[in-house]
Design a binder for these strands. Structure first.
Lengths: 93, 93
DNA sequence: CGGGCTTACGGTGTGCGTAAATATC
DNA sequence: GATATTTACGCACACCGTAAGCCCG
């Protein structure tokens, strides 16, 4: 599982639209397709039902909270790093 | 921030030894060094004090819990996926 | 017949390993 | 002097973009 795959997955969950999700992620639709495909392959099942219209599968709904926490914790880590980093005299808060 | 960087960081936190951590991660010491360097670069500060002996910096201690949660949530997602995956008739538990 | 997702193909960046250099005990 | 970490170099893989194909509305 890759970090960017998590981001792309969450964006797609939110948009339910490959074009928009790709734009939001700053990549092309084909790249997003490939990333999602790779993630689906790794998790052993489809994450989105494209047939009638884009919808989350049971698998997607099951793993979404975990991937969401991954993204949030990554953000938190970055923020905390900015606070703690000894760039100049890191003045507490 | 990359997923494998998180894994390597946690392994190094746990081992406090590049050689052992690298073996645990299934990579060579130089690769681990580069990965950690990249992560330090991204977070804007050193994560380990190599000088006298390997030790976690304040920054490392600050971000460790978040990266730990990232790894755990990734594992959980994989496990949940194994349970939900429609391989055969996924019978609840 | 138009919009959107997928497949095919090629370029580029980086993660990894081996080998050599440096530092520490 | 030996062990451990870092730097140098080269390779392979995968992410990404453009172009073409396919399907649905």
């Amino acid at each position: 599982m890759q970090m960017h795959q998590v981001r792309y997955f969450l964006a797609l969950c939110d948009e339910l639209n490959f074009t928009r999700a790709a734009r939001r992620c700053g990549i092309s639709q084909p790249s997003l397709t490939q990333a999602i495909r790779a993630l689906e392959r790794e998790l052993g099942g489809a994450l989105f039902q494209r047939e009638p219209s884009i919808a989350l599968t049971r698998l997607a709904r099951a793993v979404r909270p975990y991937l969401d926490k991954i993204a949030r914790n990554a953000d938190h880590a970055r923020e905390v790093a900015r606070t703690v980093t000894p760039r100049r005299r890191a003045r507490g808060k």
